[in-house]
Design a binder for these strands. Structure first.
Lengths: 340, 340
DNA sequence: TTGTATGCGTTATCAT
DNA sequence: ATGATAACGCATACAA
């Protein structure tokens, strides 16, 4: 920048003024500066600017699993609006590991991101401290934290799970299995709750043997599925409360020599592009991924523009997931005379 | 930091010394500083440090499509090793749009990332300028750029495509379709080349009508597929040279009322978790995604450690993709007496 | 309208 | 072993 000033024969202040047009500059001088910038190949050093202004114009994004198409879609949406507003995004993946999350949080915090959007892998003291400190906006997505006062955008998981299980019940199923996630995750808890509600409504007792614990990964999903499938009295339908565990479940069914939906019905949380091009076409709960990302960013931007002044009460926006019925669930018992 | 110094009753220099242990500090003073750090809740301001040291300890990662599981896997791998070495990663997606890529490049460059890893959406003057300037390490992944002198890690696309098409030929197919990508992408060109080679070996003439142009997205993949499938003399097999176009292809087959593999065989670039849990189990070309990411980061770190001193000649490391044969390709014509 | 001078939070170079 | 002080590149308050 000093080079530019020299070449244009103006002061540093003038150069700065034309770059940010933060002050009126006469036409000829402006032209001279612009020319000089081009000739020198000058690029703003955002680091120096950040140090001065206290804003890095980048937001930190922590998600639990980049392998999961749900998160991938949310990232995409966040990226888009962030960029549109001149923000960059620093991405970290916790791989569902709270310890890794803690480390990454530190990394992003050190780098002075202006705000954080987090799909937490589980509460840690530093995360809570960060939020409580109110030093920078934090918005939680997908997963809530108990008794923490930050904005969040999530979906109504109990309603969603209830819808799916109700549907299974309506088809005649009574032995319905569930593949759940770690109970430290609000989504896992809420989806379990929805499952229970739907069963209770139908007067079906909860059987612990029918709920398989996994950790929202395809490998444990597979393990949990194999457990359920090898039960003496096998479930006739299974609800996978996350898409990766859904994959594991489908693999488990295949490896058990069973067929879906002929032998067992499957419903699955989270939609993905592949869900309807192969057999069976999966019935899924589709989340408004784009809206989730956009909403989270909207909240962040709002805070950033307010200058963090008057922080109103934490607000959590709940969105609805939608049950997309395809072919992986069928009536039970199978009506006679229907070929499979 | 000044607070820490005050509380510990030492100078700033001493505090800095214990933080980076860049100088010997007596035991008691060190303890006092450490204590003070904890009490004040001090966190390093990486921005200020960057300004001083000239290193942000973050690498910029530009990929073409975050929706594509191939890239997702590479990102994961890069993230992992980056973090392990104290680096953060700033992620940008060009969505296969060179213009967007240009803008994002600028954004990351302004933010002074220490190095860049790029899966380019197509050459732009700024990208070439950035590389030629040699101001910071740039390593290309997945897609090469003609006559550009940077390191790169890619796979042998012509061999990979050749393997797949050879396999199709060996099953008896003679009318083999191709869904290709934009010819500005080295991967698209090379895969097309491999397709041609395999056909030439078998004495099969290239028919332009059999190669459908798409842009490595599922929507255009679908369009291209519909074109191929509506041909008067339909291909008996199609090779999709990218996984998203593979999805589009499968959807096209479904919408055309055809069945895979009974009516048409399909092979597809890029493997993904879902590939073998649904029907048909897709035969794919699997790329060493983890190795690609790790290798790219290894090169970056190497450069960063050399201090950018002696830059040897650009080296491109080529890896091999592997044909994973599953069920989506069958013999043609179908042997008599085989029920489908 | 333009220029001068100061500080953002570090690290690094000196003395001490 | 320790402390004072000068940059790093920019934005800005203030003076001209």
């Amino acid at each position: 920048m000093v080079d530019v000033a020299k070449l244009a024969e103006v002061s540093l202040a003038t150069v700065s003024a034309v770059i940010n047009d933060s002050a009126p500059v006469s036409a000829d001088r402006k032209k001279r500066v612009l020319d000089a910038i081009r000739r020198v190949g000058y690029q703003t050093n955002a680091i120096a600017r950040s140090l001065k202004t206290g804003s890095t114009k980048t937001i930190g994004l922590m998600i639990a699993d980049i392998t999961n198409p749900f998160f991938t879609a949310v990232i995409h949406s966040i990226q888009e609006v962030a960029y549109h507003h001149g923000y960059g995004v620093m991405l970290c993946c916790s791989d569902e590991d709270p310890e890794k999350e803690r480390l990454h949080l530190r990394l992003m915090s050190d780098r002075m991101v202006d705000a954080l959007i987090i799909a937490t892998a589980g509460e840690t003291p530093p995360l809570r401290a960060l939020i409580d400190s109110r030093r920078k906006p934090v918005v939680l997505i997908d997963r809530l934290l108990d008794g923490v006062a930050t904005d969040a955008v999530v979906i109504d998981n109990v309603a969603a799970a209830r819808d799916a299980v109700r549907y299974l019940v309506s088809l005649g199923h009574r032995r319905i299995g569930l593949i759940t996630g770690k109970s430290t995750l609000s989504t896992a808890r809420e989806r379990y709750q929805g499952y229970c509600q739907a069963l209770a409504e139908a007067g079906i007792a909860i059987e612990n043997a029918l709920v398989g614990a996994a950790r929202f990964g395809s490998a444990d999903g597979y393990g949990a599925a194999m457990g359920l499938l090898s039960l003496a009295e096998r479930p006739t339908a299974i609800f996978a409360s996350n898409n990766l565990s859904g994959i594991g479940l489908m693999r488990g069914i295949k490896d058990s020599g069973l067929r879906c939906p002929a032998d067992i019905s499957v419903a699955c949380f989270d939609d993905f592009e592949w869900a309807d091009v192969f057999e069976p076409r999966l019935t899924t709960l589709v989340q408004p991924t784009r809206a989730i990302g956009a909403q989270a960013m909207a909240i962040v931007l709002e805070h950033l523009q307010d200058g963090g002044a008057q922080r109103s009460a934490a607000r959590v926006v709940r969105m609805r997931a939608q049950l997309r019925i395809r072919d992986s669930c069928v009536m039970w018992p199978p009506p006679p005379g229907l070929s499979t």
